[in-house]
Nucleic acid binder design. Sequence first.
DNA 1: CTAGGGTTAG
Length: 620
Amino acid sequence: MNAEASAFVGLLRACAKKKDCCRGARIHADVLKRGFLDRNSHVAEYLVALYANCGVLPKAQELLDALHIRGVVAWTALIAGYTRYGHCQHALQCYDRMQQEGIAADVVTFTCVLKACGTLGDFDKGKQIHDLISKQNLLDNDVFLGTALVDMYAKCGALVKAHLALDELPCRDVICWNALITGYAQHEQGQNALDCFEHMQQEGLFPNAVTFTCALKACGHIGDINKGEAIHDEIMKQDFLREDLSLGNALVDMYMKCGDLAKAQEVLELLPIRDVISWSALIGGYAQQGQGQEALDCFEKMQIEGLSPNSVTLTCLLKACSSIGAADKGEKIHDEIVRQGLLESSIVLGNGLVDMYAKCGALAKARQVLNDLPVRNVISWSTLIAGYADQGQGHNAISCMERMQQEGFSPNAVTFTCLLKACSSIGATEKGEEFHDDISRQGFFKNNVALGTALVDMYAKCGALAKAQRAFEELPSGDVVCWSALIAGYAQHGYGEKALHCFELMQLNGLSPDTITFSSVLNACSHSGLVGEGELIFDSMTREFGIKPNVEHVASMVALFGHAGHLDKAVEVIQKIPSLQSSPAVWLSLMGACKRWGDVNIGQWAFEQAVRPLMNPILT
DNA sequence: CTAGGGTTAG
């Protein structure tokens, strides 16, 4: 290659590196003018690299296709470009073509191909590349390649393989540990991520900002706030927050996931720099915890700082509106979404809108939004079906499913869960049985306790208790929720003894009853007049299981005692728990008993107690 | 050419 050609190569490499496509194109024109492309394929290879790096992929591909002699540089540049700009499938196709032409891949090619495999989750292809690399002993002198290998396995979710690959590397640095830790954190194996975090430091390596970011994510997943705080201290000592936005955001998210919302907000307010993602983490956390108003307040503050919401922020805000039934605020968010034109690109956001209107009870609007969506999926439909089911509009839920099928979508396990709920809301046992058959045929009951519970609940609510019992027994596994559904079914239909029997069986199976189980059991006692049993169970609830009585528990006990004529005991239960005395349900239960036994005195007293909290806002 | 942050249906 002559001096002029190598000067062009140098210029093109510089433009490729800086992604300066404009200057690169001028050089391209110059190269053409002097006829270099005909005489010197090396210059042409770097032209491919220029366009690939700048993301002008069709142009890069076109140039490569036109070359008669093309080597590893051009192929690798194109593969790297496709991978970087998210066309990993194309990257792998290029790799295959390169192989067919007999061009040997080098470490850079392999690194890029591994990244493409990881992004696609293509384990088989990744493994095949790994074998090639091992055969050529390429891992001995290239840290980048080793990292790419660990990262590929980690992204495919093959974490044992990833860990093994890391162990076998001749030398390990922070970055390859980060790849593994990230993999564990992203696949919800928080403890393994934190173990690696320790292990890495035992090897004498210091965590950097990325390591801390991933470790914080892991803490959030397993709710380990102590570890999270320790990492927070370390970050402050090293003053990492000043230069790293992601790290601050991970910190906010960690406190949110660990349930310390106040601390999360405090951290955000003290961040030296924050962006829309920082606020989204906070808004998302509040929305998740059902604190919709706080989420909306954060949105105000974020806007005052001059930041605009993106589709993730808006998704969180919709959830916030749903949680407090704020359809008016939700409509404002809807307007913003339309203004930004986001419905075209974000199906998640569209589904969030359907959910918001549905949860606010505006089902006609939810349906209209769904109809107007440019793209829909099974989640869009399931959301609407869930909305109808929640509002007791079972018939509409079922007709939605029919329309969904006409559009070519098949119901999945979640859809069926909603549909079963729809059946229970209208007592549609026969339709429920049809769904039961469909679900069994498709094997959805395996590994899905929630679906099984919905089935038991459907039969139980419809009063088909023998079928509920049979469905329950056929489930591969049952948790507390599932048992509670069965117990509630027996309770509701007056089979108190059976409910109590289930309650005991459940505990014999090693499961501890929760608040809801006790609601059902006490309800069973009160419906069946099992005074002694109810009293014992109510007592054990706090003493043995540490569960504080709620309104439903107390109302059941008052009904139980009251029905049996023990008005004194009913009054006693209420008086023991002052925090529940503002609940009308408790007093209504007592007044019912007074009416039955003709006790005017207690009845009048109960009435006064019930009315007082209702009158206070009016009087003052 | 290698590692990191926020999000839809039960």
